[in-house]
Design a protein around this nucleic acid. Structure first.
Lengths: 341, 341
DNA sequence: AGCGCCTTTGAGAGCGCTCTCAAAACAAAA
DNA sequence: TTTTGTTTTGAGAGCGCTCTCAAAGGCGCT
């Protein structure tokens, strides 16, 4: 099958290239008879317009980039990304956009390509995952006037950029309150102060404590880094301080924490209540299953919708979307008895 | 910053567009003095060539597509994909290509876009994950002369298409032999006959049994579908038949199988040896940790390399890459004692 | 100086599409 | 029939790049 062009189809249908273009793009003001003739030729020969040429003419590629500055070493272990990517793909499909991946594993990788992505106009917009190093990218991104949406709360410039974030603070508040309602008073937390999302969760935890008339106890806070191992270690450090409950800001770390408790012969939820965050698939399969905070709407899909809105409307006014959370009560908090699989 | 073009840079440097193009693309036959002058102007104004225009002129986009026909419902649960995507991204980065994602969640999704991907020439090539429905795509793909590489063994047309596959059969043979060497004779298998990779693994298992003078026992084979839950159920069905060892063709199912054994009060490895396949991160964290078959080289990276070779060389002769496997011995087979974390 | 040869540069076509603008076709009104 | 107005169509420029081809420039030779 020779490569077909508008001209070629036009020749076959006895009309001009412009007319074929109109038919393909469903423009009005075409005689039905001509339209049909052209459509027949197209159907017969299987014409598909060349996406690149179209992009050049329209100055728009219908490609959006997913830019992840700092891919964790063992990405396999990053359930956030694994969930995000298909979600974004799906949202793009629904809107006839194509997602392109820009995952960077090293700063070298990244520096080399960031400028190109920014200026080569091969993407119509960018979804950027938040990162400690926001500050480096944001100014350039803002400057370049390339539409983009940040996934997560920016550490800076929040009033000048669009972002989609979960209600981390609210979710953590809910989680902590749940433990308080169950009668716990020495509530520990395993968090990760290097991460803004985790930080917001700590904030919600503190707020709930304060409102309950309790004071925050520094020795009941342990740091992790979102890995299971770090959750394990953090829990081990907390055990000597005898908390009666623990709020772990991510399911991954909860898995490690459970293991530490198990090793120490501490039964969850009998001896220690645990509430987690994220509701990853693993949360339902641990023993006991995790009571955890879920965000029902996919942030990835929201980000895509927001980005496309910016692109299509041309209105760059920053949009701030905070996705709500809900508490999924399972066994680990002790509010229910059974340890279902 | 106004949008810069070759013409603009040329004007600023007092040369023609063609000369600037030559400088940008590092062509020989340019007077050093001119080259420097142009480079200076480019550096000063921060020029980046427009990728789309270049693609049109070169009839090549430097984008390759990752085409996944049948994304499992809960993709979060698909460790294969989660590992694959960053791997491919990385390999693309290294070769200055951009990966585009075509993940399809429904046949509708898919049908709508497959033709477009195929004909719109927005990608230079495709990496396609193998699937039961190979047959539908392969002929069109072959026909279209779009370079592509299949990840996994094709169920058909193997002599006409390029593919990268793990040595599933060899790995399974090794795993089974390991169990045989440990003295086990009633070796069960949990597999998934709907999947070619799992099928190849079953094949290797049978071969090892046969070579050891044992005959394959149908009641010792249970079907799963790669989910943890199906592994759990499959193991429950096997237990009554009293195997003394089990080969599970994927780590995910092994996790479920372990849970079933645990529930039944059967200790692994004391009462039952288990060998798995994949060496996903989870394999190291189960209790006991899984003895499992790993493929050391990333198939994703191999696929990218192969695809780019096809694209760049223009030689479409089918390439068949079989990636070797190795056995990672941990606790679940009983060959070592300790149940390390 | 005149000639031929090699290197360096620019003009211009071409990639396949969109979109403006003016011409052509048609319909309705005079 | 002519005129006016509306709809439909085509010609052609433009998107920003590459690449061919021919012209210009530089060089050494006779």
């Amino acid at each position: 099958m020779a490569k077909l062009t508008l001209d070629e189809i036009g020749r076959l249908a006895g009309v001009s290239r412009a007319t074929v273009s109109r038919v393909v793009n469903n423009y009005p003001h075409i005689r039905p008879e001509i339209r049909e003739r052209v459509q027949k030729v197209i159907a017969e020969h299987g014409f598909y317009p060349n996406a690149v040429a179209r992009s050049l003419a329209l100055n728009a590629t219908h490609i959006i980039g997913l830019f992840v500055p700092n891919v964790v070493r063992f990405i396999f272990a990053d359930p956030y990304l694994s969930a995000l990517i298909p979600e974004i793909s799906r949202a793009c499909n629904a809107h006839d956009y194509t997602p392109a991946l820009f995952l960077f594993h090293s700063q070298d990788d990244e520096q080399k390509q960031f400028q190109r992505i920014l200026h080569a106009s091969m993407v119509d917009g960018l979804i950027v995952t938040a990162d400690r190093r926001d500050k480096e990218f944001m100014p350039q991104l803002i400057d370049r006037r390339l539409p983009f949406v940040l996934l997560g709360r920016p550490s800076k410039f929040s009033d000048r950029i669009s972002y989609v974030d979960s209600d981390n603070r609210g979710g953590a508040y809910m989680a902590t309150q749940h433990l308080l309602k169950l009668g716990h008073r020495r509530i520990a937390i395993i968090t990760n102060s290097l991460n803004t999302a985790a930080d917001d969760r700590t904030e919600g935890y503190r707020q709930a404590l304060t409102e309950a008339g309790l004071t925050f106890q520094p020795e009941l806070l342990a740091e992790g880094d979102f890995t299971e191992l770090s959750g394990f270690a953090a829990m081990q450090r907390l055990i000597p301080h005898r908390p009666d409950a623990v709020f772990v800001v991510s399911d991954t770390m909860s898995v490690g924490a459970l293991r530490a408790l198990n090793n120490a012969g501490i039964n969850v939820p009998r001896d220690m209540a645990l509430v987690s965050f994220d509701d990853l698939p693993v949360a339902a399969t641990t023993t006991p299953a995790l009571t955890t905070v879920r965000q029902p709407l996919g942030n990835g899909a929201l980000a895509v919708a927001t980005l496309l809105d910016i692109i299509k409307s041309g209105d760059k006014a920053p949009r701030h979307i905070i996705a709500p959370t809900e508490l999924i009560v399972r066994a680990s908090c002790g509010a229910v008895q059974s340890g279902l699989t």
